[in-house]
Measured scan of single mutants.
Amino acid sequence: RGFLEKAAVKKMAKAIMADPNKADEVYKKWADKGYTLTQMSNFLKSKTAGKYDRVYNGYVIHLD
Rank of each mutant, 00 (worst) to 15 (best):
R1G: 15
R1H: 14
R1C: 15
R1D: 12
R1Q: 14
R1K: 14
G2L: 13
G2V: 12
G2D: 15
G2F: 15
G2I: 12
G2H: 15
F3Q: 13
F3E: 12
F3W: 15
F3C: 15
L4G: 12
L4Y: 13
L4R: 15
L4D: 12
L4V: 11
L4K: 14
L4N: 12
L4H: 12
L4P: 08
E5K: 06
E5H: 07
E5M: 07
E5Q: 08
E5R: 08
E5W: 06
E5I: 12
E5C: 12
E5N: 08
K6V: 11
K6T: 10
K6I: 13
A7M: 14
A7I: 14
A7R: 15
A7F: 11
A7W: 15
A7D: 08
A7V: 13
A7K: 15
A7T: 09
A7G: 07
A7Y: 13
A8L: 13
A8S: 10
A8H: 12
A8V: 10
A8Y: 12
A8M: 13
A8T: 12
V9R: 01
V9Q: 01
V9E: 01
V9K: 01
V9A: 04
V9H: 01
K10C: 11
K10T: 08
K10R: 14
K10A: 05
K10I: 15
K11E: 08
K11S: 08
K11Q: 11
K11M: 10
K11D: 07
K11W: 07
K11H: 08
M12Y: 05
M12C: 14
M12E: 14
M12V: 04
M12F: 04
M12A: 11
A13H: 00
A13L: 04
A13P: 00
A13T: 01
A13V: 04
A13R: 02
A13K: 02
A13I: 03
K14Y: 07
K14F: 05
K14P: 01
K14L: 11
K14A: 12
K14H: 09
K14V: 07
K14I: 08
A15I: 12
A15R: 09
A15Y: 06
A15K: 08
A15D: 07
A15C: 12
I16V: 11
I16Q: 00
I16Y: 01
I16D: 00
I16L: 06
I16S: 02
I16H: 00
I16P: 00
M17S: 04
M17R: 04
M17C: 09
M17P: 00
A18W: 05
A18E: 13
A18F: 08
A18N: 11
A18I: 10
A18Y: 08
A18R: 12
A18C: 15
D19S: 06
D19I: 03
D19K: 05
P20H: 09
P20C: 10
P20K: 05
P20W: 15
N21C: 15
N21W: 10
N21L: 11
N21V: 08
N21S: 15
K22H: 06
K22T: 09
K22D: 04
K22Y: 07
K22S: 08
A23E: 04
A23G: 06
A23I: 04
A23W: 02
A23Q: 05
A23M: 06
D24Y: 12
D24R: 09
D24E: 11
D24A: 13
D24Q: 13
D24C: 15
E25F: 09
E25R: 08
E25A: 11
E25H: 07
E25V: 09
E25W: 10
E25K: 08
V26R: 02
V26Q: 04
V26N: 03
V26I: 14
V26T: 08
V26M: 08
V26P: 00
Y27G: 00
Y27K: 00
Y27L: 01
Y27W: 02
Y27D: 00
Y27T: 01
Y27A: 00
Y27N: 01
Y27E: 00
K28V: 06
K28Q: 12
K28G: 08
K28E: 07
K28N: 08
K28I: 07
K29P: 00
K29I: 15
K29E: 13
W30L: 02
W30A: 00
W30V: 00
W30T: 00
A31R: 09
A31D: 05
A31C: 15
A31S: 10
A31P: 00
A31Y: 09
A31L: 06
D32H: 10
D32N: 10
D32P: 00
D32Q: 13
D32K: 13
D32R: 10
D32F: 08
K33Q: 12
K33A: 13
K33S: 11
K33C: 15
K33G: 04
K33W: 14
K33N: 09
K33M: 13
K33V: 09
G34Y: 03
G34M: 04
G34V: 02
G34S: 04
G34N: 06
G34H: 07
G34T: 03
Y35C: 05
Y35I: 06
Y35D: 00
Y35R: 00
Y35V: 04
Y35K: 00
Y35P: 00
T36K: 03
T36M: 03
T36N: 06
T36H: 03
T36V: 03
T36A: 03
T36G: 06
T36P: 01
T36S: 09
T38E: 14
T38M: 12
T38I: 12
T38P: 10
T38F: 11
T38R: 11
T38D: 12
T38A: 14
Q39R: 05
Q39K: 05
Q39A: 08
Q39H: 07
Q39L: 06
Q39E: 12
M40W: 04
M40K: 00
M40T: 02
M40A: 03
M40F: 01
M40H: 00
M40D: 00
S41K: 15
S41I: 07
S41V: 09
S41R: 14
S41W: 15
N42V: 11
N42K: 12
N42W: 15
N42Q: 13
N42F: 12
N42M: 12
N42I: 11
F43M: 11
F43H: 03
F43V: 04
F43N: 02
F43D: 02
L44P: 01
L44W: 02
L44S: 00
L44H: 00
L44M: 02
L44K: 00
L44E: 00
L44V: 01
L44G: 00
L44Y: 01
L44C: 03
L44I: 03
K45Q: 12
K45A: 09
K45G: 07
K45R: 11
K45F: 08
K45Y: 09
K45T: 12
K45M: 11
K45D: 08
K45H: 09
S46N: 06
K47S: 11
K47I: 06
K47F: 07
K47G: 13
K47P: 09
K47A: 09
T48H: 10
T48E: 12
T48D: 10
T48F: 08
T48R: 10
T48I: 10
T48W: 09
A49T: 10
A49Q: 11
A49L: 11
G50R: 06
G50S: 06
G50Q: 05
G50E: 05
G50P: 04
G50Y: 04
G50I: 04
K51C: 07
K51Y: 14
K51F: 11
K51L: 12
K51H: 06
K51V: 08
K51R: 07
K51A: 08
K51S: 05
Y52N: 02
Y52V: 02
Y52H: 02
Y52I: 02
Y52T: 02
D53S: 07
D53C: 11
D53I: 05
D53W: 08
R54A: 15
R54W: 14
R54D: 15
R54Y: 13
V55Y: 02
V55L: 02
V55E: 02
V55W: 02
V55T: 02
V55C: 03
Y56C: 04
Y56D: 01
Y56Q: 03
Y56A: 01
Y56E: 02
Y56S: 01
Y56L: 14
Y56V: 07
Y56K: 04
N57A: 13
N57P: 02
N57I: 11
N57M: 12
G58Q: 04
G58H: 03
G58V: 02
G58C: 05
G58R: 02
Y59D: 01
Y59G: 00
Y59A: 01
Y59C: 02
Y59P: 01
Y59L: 01
Y59E: 01
Y59R: 00
V60W: 06
V60Q: 10
V60L: 09
V60T: 06
V60P: 01
V60Y: 05
V60A: 14
V60N: 04
I61D: 13
I61Q: 14
I61K: 14
I61G: 07
I61M: 14
I61T: 11
H62N: 02
H62M: 05
H62D: 01
H62A: 06
H62R: 02
L63I: 07
L63F: 04
L63M: 06
L63V: 05
L63H: 03
L63T: 04
L63C: 07
L63Q: 04
L63S: 02
D64H: 13
D64F: 12
D64T: 15
D64K: 15
D64Y: 13
D64I: 15
D64N: 15
